[in-house]
Design a protein around this nucleic acid. Sequence first.
DNA 1: ATTGCAAATGCGAATCAATCTCATTTAAGA
DNA 2: TCTTAAATGAGATTGATTCGCATTTGCAAT
Lengths: 133, 133
Amino acid sequence: MTEAELKDAGLKVTLPRLKVLQVLDNADPHHLSAEDVYRELVNADVTVGLATVYRVLTQFEQAGIVTRHNFDDGHSVFELATEEHHDHMVDLDSGKVIEFVNEAIEQLQHEIAEQHGYELVNHELVLFVRKAK
Amino acid sequence: MTEAELKDAGLKVTLPRLKVLQVLDNADPHHLSAEDVYRELVNADVTVGLATVYRVLTQFEQAGIVTRHNFDDGHSVFELATEEHHDHMVDLDSGKVIEFVNEAIEQLQHEIAEQHGYELVNHELVLFVRKAK
DNA sequence: ATTGCAAATGCGAATCAATCTCATTTAAGA
DNA sequence: TCTTAAATGAGATTGATTCGCATTTGCAAT
């Protein structure tokens, strides 16, 4: 339950935070930019500042509630961390983002880290693709 | 030879371009931000505008002379496109960047793209790691 | 319930990387 | 050497994100 998530993270339960969570939860393309979230809120007649959206998303990231991805075009997108892990494929022509999971790759990543004396904490994999002819 | 590279790319051989190539060539940590390159040039008494550095790096990227990476929250870094493709591993504690290659992962990426009806144009893989205990 | 106060918010200003404008310079072919 | 399109430098501009600060609000202790 969302209120509990906030309290566990040591964050006060406020309207902006609940609303941001709600927007992320209902997001159809899982990935939303801060601006996207902001627009949704304004659209739903929730008056919040863009700065607050950024602050809240950053706090959520630190609290492990959302994950941040830095795609190519220079701006971040966020998604609920409750989704199971997946990587991304970006269609260079349409900009569409496809999610995928590949256990073999996940496995290999751990092995590579180990081979270098490290343990894998996290990773970021994005495939840039184009419709096959 | 560097001059030939520029001509092949249909770019005029100019001082700024040669100097940027030179800086990238001598870069100890392979990865430099545009700002890094700019600072090196100013340091070497080569007067060149930051805008030019950005323009040149972008042209080089399009010409396949350098590769651009977007890791490390926010800004791009560039490195000479060596014959060897490689991915990156970032030590979260020291910030050190390690390069690695794994053919199996490369192969899997192509397969994944194909499975979705795409062809792989490019990819970005960064492992965030920490010294194993 | 009421209160006190630190935490949270809104909004405009500030920042930072990157891009654009445009007047001036320069490479390189004729 | 001349000509011209391409390239450059410097500053203005954009776009995403963060900051500063006065105001508001959650919530723990009255």
